[in-house]
Design a binder for these strands. Structure first.
Lengths: 313, 313
DNA sequence: TCAAAAGTGTTATCCTTACACCCATGT
DNA sequence: ACATGGGTGTAAGGATAACACTTTTGA
C-alpha cells in the first residue's frame, strides 16, 4: 500500500456578539454560499494546529482570537464534499473560537453574519420558532413515516417535539444532522442524498453553507451552549466592562432562550464570576446600570464553574 | 511553499470491564512501555476515520467495538514525541471505544491492563488515594512555589486539593497535564521538559506509556466520566443481563468514586434506563439478585439521560 | 409625571442526601 | 440460625423557580 499525501484543512467557527445579536464570521465569494474561514495546516511553519489557526486568522481577518477550542476532525470525503468540486482536504479539523466584535476593525465586521440565519430553528428567545411547526415537524414526520423504522419518529419527537425546550438546547448538531438525513437542508440535496426531498417548491431550511461548514457551525454552537453551563467562557464574548443585562442578553443569544431576570442575577452573583465596578452606564434609557467586570482571579481559585442558566423568561 | 505528505495515525483507548476492574487495552513490546493500539488511516481504503478504526481494531485484536467516540486530534510533533525516535505521525486522532471484555476471546483479554495502574491518583473508590498526600501534593506545591506565579498554586489546589473530590472527577486530563508540566510523570522527563524533576530517587507517578498515549487515556477517562452523567453509555460496558450491584460497581470503577447504594438505585430506576427481567442470579453469595437489562427502546424516546450519580458512598 | 430599564426580597416546590431497616437465599 | 448480599421507605435540607414590587434616571 503506497503512502499518500494528505493535506489538513483547519476550519474555524468564529463567534462574536454585537448588540445582542450572535454572529459568525463568514467569507463570501460572488455567487456562492457562505463559507467559514479556513486554511491549510503546514506542519513546517506551525508546531500545533492552534498556533497555525491563530496565525492565518490574524492574517486573513485582522482579528485577535480569544478562546479557542478544537471541535472535531472529519476524515470524511464522501458525505459532505461538493460533487464535481475539487476538495483538496481529506482531513479537516474544526475549531470554535470566541472574539469580541466591538474590539475589531469595522471592515472586518462587515463579514459577520447572524448565526440564526443559518440555524433559524435554534432561536427560541421569542418562544418556539414558527418554522418548527410550519415547516420542520410536518416534513420530518412525513419522512419518518415513510422510513418505517420507529426509531426515526422517536428521534424527531425528541429533537423537535418538546413543547418548550426542556434543557436540550445543546443538541444543535443532532438536530442539524436529522434535518440533513431527512433531506430538508440544501446541503443534503447538493450532496445527493437519496432521501432528499427535491420539491423545488418548499424552500430549504435556513441559509446553506459550502462544504460541511454548516455542520461545523452547528457543532460549535452546541458545544458552546453546553460549555456555558460549566465554564465561564461567556466572558470571552463580553467587553471589559458590561452591565448585567448585557451579560444576560449575551447568554440568551448564545443559548437561544429567554432567561428569568431575577434568577439570572442571583445565579451570577452566587457564582462570584463578576465584580462590580464604580462605573455606571447611563445610555441604556432608564435607570443607569452598574458596570461589572469578569472576576478572573476569583474564578481561577474556584472550580471555575459556568453559569447555571435557570429555566425560562 | 511545497505540499507535504502527512500521515494520519489513529489511536484508540479501548475500555472494558472485568469483575469490577476497569481495563484498558494495551500492547506491549519487550522492553518498552505500554502503548495503546494504533494504526494508520488510509483514505483509499476507508471512507471515514471510524470505519478505519473499527477495521484495524478487529484485525489486530479480534475485538468488536461497541460505542466509539472521537476524542481529540493532535498535530503536535514537538511535545510528546520520543526524542531520537522516528515519529511518523504528524497528526494523530485519538478515539475512545467501549467494549465488553467478557464477550471477547481470552487471548485478547491478556492484553487488558487495569486503568488505574497508569493513573493511580484517579481511583477514589476507597477514599482519597494515599499517593496524593504522600507524593503528589508536596512535590506539586514545591514546584508551584518555585514558579512564583500564583496561578500555579491555585491550579494545584483546585485539581488535587479538594478534601473529598466534589464532582471534579472528570478533570482527569487537567490533572495529568499539571503533573506533566511539573515534571512528575515519566513522559515529561523523557520529552526533556526543562522543569522535569530529575531526582532518580523519587519514583515517577504511575506507569508510563509510549508517545502521548497516557494523555490520550486521561482524555478518554475524563470524557467517559463526564458522559456518564448525561448519556447512557455505561451500558456499553455491561453484558446483556446484569444485576444492579454490578451496574453500580461499573459506574464506580469508571467514575472512580464510591456511590451510595440506595440513592444509586433510586436514580437508576427514576431514569427508566433499565427493565427488570424474570431471571435472578444466585451466585452472588447472599439473596439472589434480580437481573436487569438496558431498556434501549425506552431510552430512545426520552431525552436519553445518563445517570446522575448522587454523592458518595 | 411618566416611561423605561435597573435592581431587590420572599415563598412554594422539588430534588438530593442521608438515615435505618427488612428480605431471601446458602451453609 | 446466621452470614451475606439484595432491596426499600421516609424525613431533613438545600437549591431552583416563580412570584411582585421599589429605585433611578431621561424626556
Amino acid at each position: 500500500m503506497t503512502e499518500r499525501a494528505i493535506s489538513i484543512g483547519l476550519t474555524a467557527a468564529i463567534i462574536a456578539m454585537r448588540e445582542n445579536v450572535p454572529l459568525i464570521l463568514t467569507q463570501h465569494e460572488a455567487g456562492k454560499a457562505a463559507a467559514l474561514p479556513s486554511g491549510q495546516f503546514n506542519p513546517l511553519l506551525h508546531r500545533t494546529f492552534e498556533i497555525g489557526l491563530r496565525d492565518w486568522v490574524s492574517e486573513q481577518t485582522d482579528m485577535r482570537l480569544g478562546y479557542v477550542e478544537q471541535l472535531y476532525t472529519f476524515g470524511d470525503r464522501g458525505r459532505h464534499a461538493m460533487p464535481g468540486d475539487v476538495d483538496p482536504h481529506v482531513v479537516s479539523v474544526g475549531y470554535l473560537a470566541l472574539t469580541q466584535a466591538e474590539a475589531n476593525p469595522p471592515q472586518t465586521q462587515a463579514d459577520f453574519a447572524e448565526i440564526y440565519l443559518f440555524l433559524p430553528w435554534e432561536d427560541w428567545r421569542n418562544g418556539r420558532p414558527a418554522i418548527i411547526d410550519e415547516q420542520i415537524l410536518p416534513r420530518l414526520q412525513g419522512w419518518a413515516k415513510k422510513q418505517g423504522a420507529s426509531g426515526k419518529s422517536d428521534r424527531v419527537q425528541r429533537l423537535f417535539g418538546s413543547a418548550s425546550g426542556g434543557s436540550d438546547e445543546e443538541f444543535v448538531l443532532e438536530r442539524y444532522e436529522l434535518l440533513y438525513e431527512a433531506g430538508l437542508v440544501e446541503e443534503a440535496r447538493r450532496d445527493g442524498r437519496e432521501n432528499a426531498q427535491s420539491d423545488t417548491i418548499t424552500p430549504a431550511l435556513g441559509q446553506s453553507m459550502q462544504f460541511d461548514h454548516r455542520r461545523i457551525l452547528a457543532t460549535a454552537l452546541g458545544r458552546l451552549r453546553a460549555k456555558l453551563k460549566y465554564r465561564p467562557v461567556i466572558f470571552e464574548l463580553m467587553p471589559e466592562l458590561f452591565t448585567l443585562t448585557a451579560l444576560q442578553r449575551t447568554v440568551e443569544a448564545i443559548s437561544g432562550r429567554a432567561l428569568h431576570k431575577q434568577n439570572f442575577r442571583r445565579l451570577v452573583s452566587a457564582s462570584h464570576a463578576v465584580e462590580e465596578t464604580n462605573a455606571v452606564l447611563t445610555t441604556t434609557g432608564g435607570r443607569p446600570a452598574s458596570l461589572y467586570r469578569f472576576a478572573r482571579e476569583v474564578i481561577d481559585l474556584r472550580a471555575a464553574v459556568g453559569l447555571r442558566l435557570g429555566r425560562r423568561g
